[in-house]
């Protein structure tokens, strides 16, 4: 219930209506949305029980390594009610054609694979919020100093998932494990998306806000 309350409000992409759709416009819109989402994710992380008691340095290392996973998991969850469309925001939904224009066909295909997995499992909101917190706690950053404290954070959230499943889905004893087994695909997808935006940064054609750049460079 704590995680349900900590869930942030929806953001809007607000693409510039005066600019025609193009690859650069799509990337500009997504980078701007991601920059604003990052601010929200950072304050969300502070509401995860145990996160704020970590050292500032460990909090930074964790967020720098998992922020894209948190972003993608949110996008995947928002896309659950749609057919083969990626919901970056309620006002920014990419179908196949738009994905092609935006140069995101392959990436959106990866995200769709994740969405299909969660769809087939009928992922619930409670499971989504625990999984998102677990993705945060599951950082494998080599820069973490107090590994034990991070492990404890992981254990508490893992426990929450097991508790939820044993009370809500007792007829599906392997459901918690099944959910955890989606985390590798989430990481793989997030890494691909990071690569994509890092290359865009190198090209230098898309304006990027400071926080987004800072996290991309980390």
């Amino acid at each position: 219930s704590h995680l349900m309350v900590a869930e942030p409000e929806k953001l809007y992409a607000m693409p510039d209506p005066t600019v025609p759709d193009s690859y650069v416009k799509a990337m500009t819109t997504l980078c701007d949305l991601a920059d604003r989402e990052l601010v929200v994710i950072i304050s969300w992380a502070k509401n995860i029980p145990g996160f704020s008691s970590l050292s500032l340095s460990d909090q930074m290392s964790i967020l720098q390594s998992v922020w894209m996973e948190i972003l993608i998991l949110g996008v995947a969850y928002r896309s659950l009610a749609f057919d083969d469309e990626i919901v970056y925001a309620q006002d920014y939904i990419m179908d196949e054609e738009f994905s092609r224009t935006a140069g995101m066909l392959d990436l959106n295909g990866c995200i769709l694979q994740l969405v299909r997995k969660y769809k087939s499992m009928k992922l619930e909101k409670e499971e989504f919020v625990i999984l998102k917190a677990l993705a945060l706690a599951n950082s494998d950053s080599v820069h973490i100093e107090d590994v034990e404290a991070v492990q404890k954070l992981q254990d508490v959230l893992h426990e929450a998932l097991i508790d939820f499943e044993s009370s809500k889905q007792p007829e599906e004893p392997r459901r918690a494990g099944k959910l955890l087994m989606t985390l590798p695909l989430l990481r793989q997808t997030a890494n691909k998306v990071l690569h994509h935006f890092y290359n865009i940064k190198l090209e230098g054609k898309v304006p990027m806000h400071k926080l987004f750049l800072e996290m991309l460079e980390a």
Binding site: V39, S43, L56, E214
Partner: peptide, 15 residues
Amino acid sequence: KEKHKILHRLLQDST
């Protein structure tokens, strides 16, 4: 840490 000053500041903000 100087390179990551925005993240640092946002984590330190109390809000």
